[in-house]
Computed example of a mutant assay.
Amino acid sequence: MNRKKFEVIAREEADQHTIYVKGELDLAVAAEFRSAIEPLISTDKEVILDMGELTYIDSTGMGILIFFLKARKEENRAFAVQNIPQKIKKLLDLTGITRFLPVQDGAPGQEAGEV
């Protein structure tokens, strides 16, 4: 099996945390992804999830994404995604998740809905 290695890179800047995900986000790496983003639930800084190099996401990965989105919303903290690959966006659109995700890079005026 030729799996693409999953990687999470976190960068902290003055006013935001950017989380870069790369490879396949599935059940096998879900714990790694969750442990990388969970500490950022309560941060005052905006959290940006950059999906530019994400090649695959399964229901487990989407579940963690929804969990994080809800947790940030409950704490009135800013969260957005950027650089969603077309095939990932299509899946998020089909499942209805994109209407709740604020997209930072190319959808002016797009707002997050109620989760």
Rank of each mutant, 00 (worst) to 15 (best):
L40V: 09
A36M: 08
G61H: 02
V81I: 15
M1F: 13
Q16I: 09
P108V: 00
S35Q: 13
Q86R: 04
L92I: 02
V29W: 01
F33M: 04
A10M: 14
M51E: 00
I57Y: 02
A78P: 07
L94C: 07
L69F: 10
L54Y: 00
G106D: 06
G96Q: 04
R72H: 04
G113Q: 04
I57V: 10
M1G: 15
F67P: 01
L49C: 02
M51L: 15
I48L: 13
K73R: 11
K4M: 13
T43W: 00
I97C: 02
P85D: 07
K5L: 14
L49K: 01
E75S: 13
N76I: 09
T95P: 00
P108Y: 02
T55N: 08
T95S: 03
G23S: 02
D15L: 07
L49N: 00
D15E: 11
A10N: 15
H17V: 14
E114C: 10
I88C: 07
R99T: 14
D50G: 05
K87P: 05
A112M: 06
T95L: 01
L69N: 06
E111T: 12
I48Y: 01
S59H: 05
P108G: 03
R99D: 12
M1R: 12
K45H: 10
D26H: 08
N76M: 13
F100W: 06
F68M: 03
L49G: 00
E7Y: 15
A107Q: 13
D105Q: 13
K45D: 10
R72Y: 01
V29L: 04
E32K: 14
E111W: 09
I64L: 09
N83H: 13
P39T: 11
V8G: 06
I48M: 08
F33G: 00
K45I: 14
K45Y: 02
P39S: 12
S42C: 11
